[in-house]
């Protein structure tokens, strides 16, 4: 949670138990470099304590992109896959704090669109946790959830 890392083929990168958080994979298919951010909140500008850039969708994606470019990835070739953003508890109220999963997904999509990075696949929303693994070699994102078949997007 609130972390970001990059990895190159043949290694793989994973994050365990994504709930309302969103996992954002950026990938350069030619250089086979991938980055993964696990963000908790949508927008750094709405929070006072916003030094931890890996925590917010907007700042984490910026930083991840920057680190990947420093390591030889090209922004023009970059594509994205996103997963997570579930609503873990069936809250009945309309409190926006409680629909945080949905807001995280929207914020991630907006940020990627702003940067001109295409989202080629997503598995978001619903009400279950996900573990994700990304393989830069093949560009496959493996999604595991409790009581569900493994899925590759």
């Amino acid at each position: 949670m609130a972390d970001l890392k990059i990895c190159c083929s043949p290694d793989a990168i994973t994050t365990l138990g994504l709930g309302s958080c969103v996992g954002i994979v950026l990938y350069d298919p030619i250089e086979k470099i991938a980055g993964l951010a696990h963000v908790m909140l949508p927008d750094s500008t709405q929070i006072v304590c916003n030094e931890n850039i890996a925590k917010f969708a907007d700042t984490a994606i910026d930083r991840l992109l920057q680190i990947m470019i420093e390591n030889g990835a090209s922004k023009n070739r970059m594509i994205a896959k996103i997963a997570g953003g579930a609503q873990m508890f069936a809250f009945s109220s309309e409190n926006p704090m409680l629909c945080i999963g949905k807001r995280n997904v929207e914020a991630s999509k907006n940020k990627l669109e702003e940067l001109g990075i295409r989202i080629v696949a997503e598995d978001t929303g619903d009400s279950y946790g996900r573990t994700i693994e990304f393989y830069p070699e093949t560009g496959e994102l493996l999604i595991k959830a409790v009581g569900k078949e493994k899925k590759i997007i």
């Binding site: 949670m1 609130a2 365990l16 138990g17 994504l18 709930g19 309302s20 958080c21 908790m40 909140l41 929070i47 304590c49 030094e51 931890n52 925590k55 579930a86 873990m88 508890f89 069936a90 809250f91 009945s92 704090m97 945080i100 009400s127 279950y128 946790g129 996900r130 573990t131 409790v146």
Partner: peptide, 26 residues
Amino acid sequence: SIPYMSVDMAGAVLSVPAIAFGELGD
């Protein structure tokens, strides 16, 4: 409030209180 329940991975279940804390600090 009324109880809300979730049966899932620990990380996913704990993400909800973690996010509440995330608004305040690290």
